[in-house]
Simulated assay, not measured.
Amino acid sequence: MFNKLLSKIFPSTASPAKHALSTLPIAPISASPENGDASSDPLLPVKRAGKEIASKLFLAMSTEKGIHLESLLSALGALAGYACQISVREAYVVQLKRPEKEVFIVVHSKQNDTTYYFGDLLNRPLAESRYSIWSLASGATQKLGLQQLIDLHEIFKHVTDTLGGTNFGVPRIDSAHQAKETPLNYVIFLWPRLFPLAQSFCKNPSDWPIAFGVAIQEILYASKDLIAPDLALRIVMESAVPMSKIYLPAQAVQVSN
């Protein structure tokens, strides 16, 4: 599946999805830049990056019958969550040379011999800042009519409770709406292709998660009549929160030539 997907980024994914959403006609997203320049809108490069990411991934995951929307939302949520940690890591560990344990709360699970990352600096781009993944995604769903937001704190608790276990990073979504791959696999296979795209538009590491957040908004608005906003928001955040906690060595991410 991923070899074909990657060949389209840069073009139908494997077999067509079985779910009802996959049979809907494709409605391409415009990736054309907005009018104006960065001097009048400092977020313009970030917006351009988000539109480009959304457009490329949308087209890459589309088939002649349509797109599996749940998979697209999960993939973007996973990438957005991972972008939060990478942005903090770049800004503080790489550029400011601060020790990793001063930047993150580092938790090592003996259950699966894996290290996870937490902390206030990580929570800001993920769920607390004005342009956090949560702010951008939840704001979009509210504009689409969502009256009652999902319980984000409960998602954080579930992620913490499942560290090191087989349920970690597995979105708790009804089987009829599950993505085709796990959030971890989306990060492993898609990050090496889409992260450089975000970097090409956004030089400031703090803008990288925002770019993926904008991409999520693009898909949410484009699919406003195709999926319930609460379900869409849950898919995004159930993928984003756990993927913000992982860190993959270079050999773990795969790039297809």
Rank of each mutant, 00 (worst) to 15 (best):
I155K: 03
H158A: 11
L126D: 04
S135L: 03
S132T: 05
E128I: 12
T115M: 06
H153K: 09
Y117G: 08
S138K: 06
G139P: 04
L144R: 05
F156R: 08
A140I: 00
S135H: 02
W134T: 00
H158I: 12
I133C: 03
G145T: 09
D151R: 00
H158V: 04
I133L: 04
F156A: 02
Q142N: 05
N123Y: 13
L152A: 10
L136M: 14
G119N: 11
Y131C: 04
I155D: 01
Y117I: 03
Q142Y: 01
S138I: 00
S129Q: 14
P125L: 03
L122R: 12
A127K: 08
R130H: 13
Q147M: 09
I155F: 01
D120R: 14
T141L: 02
S135F: 04
S138P: 01
L149C: 06
H153G: 03
R130L: 15
Y131T: 14
D151T: 00
K157H: 02
H153P: 02
T115Q: 11
L146E: 10
L149Q: 09
Y131W: 04
A140F: 00
F156W: 09
R124C: 03
Q148F: 10
Y117N: 15
R130A: 14
E154Y: 03
G139C: 00
Q147V: 09
S129V: 10
P125W: 07
I150E: 14
F118N: 00
L121I: 11
L146A: 05
G139M: 02
L144D: 04
L152S: 02
L144S: 05
L122M: 12
L144P: 15
Y131R: 07
S132K: 08
I150C: 07
G119H: 08
L152D: 00
G145K: 12
S132Q: 13
G119Y: 13
E154K: 10
D120K: 13
L121H: 09
L121Y: 08
T141H: 05
I150W: 04
L121N: 06
R124S: 14
L136V: 06
S138H: 09
A127F: 03
Y131N: 14
D151A: 04
H153V: 04
T115F: 07
I155W: 01
G119K: 07
T115K: 13
L146F: 08
G145L: 06
G119V: 11
G145A: 10
L152W: 02
Y116R: 11
L122Y: 15
Q148R: 13
H153Y: 03
G119A: 06
E154I: 04
R124M: 15
H153S: 09
T141I: 04
Q148T: 12
L149S: 13
